[in-house]
Design a protein around this nucleic acid. Structure first.
Length: 481
RNA sequence: CGAGGCGUAGCUCAGUUUGGUAGAGUGCUUGCUUUGGGAGCAAGAUGCCGCAGGUUCAAGUCCUGUCGCCUCGACCA
């Protein structure tokens, strides 16, 4: 049982969420050894513990990509200016934040090269070479890489200039097929978030104002963070044949006529780690969903200098290696120090093994999320650990969902919407006519942007919350990271 | 890019108002005692005071410039 004195000590290391959510976030990111700042503004060093989380996400997601028939490729880092310029809306959207390579050694380049902010143009150039017939379709490519965007304000994971992600780029014979792919991959992202990361998401479509530069439609999964703000956690775009026309990608169809293929792209970045932190974390630090936790259980020997304790702990750890990702901390830090350390790092389970336990042939398992203690006989541990991990994942999901539900409201007038937001950040469902002007007005007057038009529409009224004209869709509004 | 704040030991910061020997806590190293919620004692090592100019007998401190970081806006995955 945790008493007040212990709680207090931990609060000294990490600013409480209540007091300052931004500082809490920065503290957690640093205390949990996820990142370090680098000498380049806006670029972060992802440390082993943080990178291990990304590797776990990669492994899960890459498996899902393979299961849905995708292949990995690698495209160049540099894009010639002329190539980037081929699709007008795309270049206009990205131009303000691209970095340029102008020199090779001491010589100025005849044509400057941009460092990829995203790789649509490179994939298109390649597809133009390799797609000739309907037999060449679909092309289902993905790449894991980093991209660079010259951001003005940055925060670890949430917005850095360089960030790691995957970008899928696919080409299809028909529009229907491409739309289905767009939705399928959004579903893959939603499954990653909900089943593995324990983050409930809302699937929906972006308004024209919020959609990707050059896309016909952008789909998104939106998650609510602990403080009520939204985080766009993955996007999937349907391009129609716009890029295909701009890049002259044509194929001979089954009817022996030339046609333009239909395209999609979809991406998920290290930002998702920010979502994990801000969805599950608490005042004692990080709380990791077991599926991506680098260490799922940490064994802490108690009074490890005593005869036999360390040996027993080593044997126990070794015997559970095939059950979960488990580690023994036999450093000479005090047991209390270790408790705090692994709590800050969000390790889902702690296994305490001391002289008293050894006498009774048992150990104490403590859950990170609620500190619940289980006294488990050693020979039942292998069966019990996966079960507790599963319960913990479910509890994380339920808690996150509860937070979202508690902070989600409906409004049918602007005053109502403003009153709700005055109480604190959250999602507000409201009807919208489809006009940009109304969207802008909500931003201006209430400080919220449209997060998405959920796939599951629940009409609140039939008129726009802003102008009163007939409504086209229910929109989830909120403040975003 | 606008407004504000901050750059001093690995980290967090005091010292700057009023110029005069470079400081604390924590961490690190060594030893002993401890160990079921961030242990105690002792000894030790650690500094281009962000960088560049200037004023001065003397600059961490004053002046000018510059770079970087943080927070809040605007912009964005």
């Amino acid at each position: 049982m945790a008493d007040m004195a212990e709680q207090k000590k931990l609060v000294e290391a990490i600013t409480s969420m209540e007091e300052d959510f931004s500082r809490w976030y920065t503290d957690v990111v640093k205390k949990a050894d996820l990142v370090d700042y680098s000498s380049v503004r806006g670029c972060m060093i992802i440390r082993p513990y943080g990178y291990a989380i990304w590797e776990n996400i990669q492994r899960i997601l890459d498996g899902m990509f393979k299961d849905t028939g995708h292949e990995n490729v690698y495209m160049p880092l540099l894009i010639p200016e002329s190539l980037l310029n081929k699709e007008k809306e795309h270049v206009e959207g990205f131009a303000p934040e691209v970095a340029w390579v102008t020199h090779g050694g001491s010589e100025e380049l005849a044509e400057r090269l941009c460092i990829r902010p995203t790789s649509e143009t490179l994939f298109c150039e390649h597809y133009a070479h390799i797609i000739n017939s309907s037999r060449d379709l679909p092309k289902l490519y993905n790449q894991w890489c980093s991209v660079l965007r010259w951001e003005k304000t940055t925060r670890p994971f949430l917005r850095t200039m360089e960030f790691l992600w995957q970008e899928g780029h696919t080409m299809h014979e028909t529009a229907e097929e491409a739309v289905a792919e767009t939705e399928k991959m959004l579903g893959v992202y939603a499954r990653l978030c909900e089943d593995y990361l324990a983050i409930p998401v809302i699937k929906g479509r972006k308004t024209d104002k919020e959609k990707f530069a050059g896309a016909e439609a952008t789909y998104t999964i939106e998650a609510m963070m602990h403080d009520g703000k939204a985080l766009q956690s993955g996007t999937s775009h349907y391009f129609g044949d716009g890029f295909a026309r701009a890049f002259d990608i044509q194929f001979t169809g089954r009817d022996n006529k030339l046609a333009y293929p239909h395209q999609t792209s979809w991406g998920l970045s290290t930002r998702i780690i920010g979502a994990i932190i801000m969805t599950h974390g608490d005042d004692n630090g990080l709380v990791l969903p077991p599926a991506v936790a680098p260490i799922q259980a940490i064994v802490i020997p108690i009074a490890q200098h005593k005869e036999g304790v360390l040996e027993k702990a080593r044997a126990l750890t070794e015997s559970l290696k095939t059950v979960c990702r488990i580690k023994l901390d036999e450093s000479d830090n005090s047991a209390g120090w270790k408790f705090s350390e692994y709590e800050m790092k969000g390790v889902p389970l702690r296994i305490e093994l001391g002289p008293k336990d050894i006498e009774q042939n048992q150990c104490v398992v403590v859950r990170r999320d609620n500190r619940q203690k289980y006294f488990v006989p050693l020979d039942e541990l292998a069966a019990k650990l996966p079960q507790i991990l599963e319960e913990l994942t479910q509890a994380l999901y339920d808690k996150a969902l509860e937070n979202r539900q508690n902070r989600t409201f409906s409004a049918s007038t602007m005053d109502e919407l403003k009153d709700i937001l005055a109480q604190g950040d959250g999602f507000v469902k409201a009807m919208w006519c489809g006009d940009l002007a109304c969207e802008m007005k909500l931003k201006e007057e209430a400080g919220v942007t449209s997060r998405c038009m959920p796939a599951e529409q629940e009409p609140i009224s039939d008129s726009c919350i802003c102008c009163g004209k007939p409504a086209k869709a229910m929109v989830v509004w909120g403040k975003a990271y």
